[in-house]
Amino acid sequence: MESGTWKVKTGLAQMLKGGVIMDVINAEQAKIAQETGACAVMALERVPADIRATGGVARMADPTIIEAIMKAVSIPVMAKCRIGHFVEAQALQVLGVDFIDESEVLTPADEAHHIWKHEFKVPFVCGCRDLGEALRRIGEGAAMIRTKGEAGTGNIVEAVRHMRAVTDGIRKLVNTPRDEPMALAKEMEAPFELAEEIHKTGELPVVNFAAGGVATPTDAALMMQLGADGVFVGSGIFKSSSPEVRARAIVKATTHFQDPEIIAEVSKNLGEAMPGLDIKQIPTEELLAPRGW
């Protein structure tokens, strides 16, 4: 019996596909998430919209909160650590979380290096803005990828940009002649072996979710139609006026993403969505997506 293998790490991500992973800050929200059909929860001290509003250094959540959430639900529990903060990751692994998100939503602890994720038994998910960034993270051992989007804004535009950029990178690698992937890998700042693998297979070697700005059922279905394997909803659910109704609607829209009739139906009477932010109005130094290297 061998635990913590690449197969069981990437395999858990495969089991999450077609599902919605919801940000929760306590056991009560976690139970609502499970009840409404979430395939996993992200245990946090504050959702991204509040991290954005509060400012200061954002760190790993208090283990008490994470443990309370793990006790409250049977679905997988994820938690975030800071970029490069491998000791926060060690602590999360000991706590028993099922997935670690090395996340740009928290304040980075290292401005040159991400965590060497192959050393951990628990799988990691990391954010990306394009294919090169996705492949660098997979090279370091990320068993799952997500778009960064722009967390806590309720604005889908950045997630769309990042998903299209990943797809565009894959298309370029697939269409490049047999003797040219090296130049593309160099241009994308991607590890060559992974670039070459995509040139051959035409697909990412790990699951890719959408994240960062999903606020409505149509946002979720949009990302699925653009090729996402599933969606993370951060502030979008518990910052809205009727979290349960919205959560159920987003879960249904993610499953039935190709069915506009169902999407129209579940979009009715959802109450107020979270207040959104125009990305252009956010000062550059307050953007989260550029964090990560």
Binding site: M1, G4, K7, V8, L12
Partner: peptide, 13 residues
Amino acid sequence: RNAFGRQKDSFET
């Protein structure tokens, strides 16, 4: 369900 524990106890054999 989850009879072997959490994800860190997932395995191949």
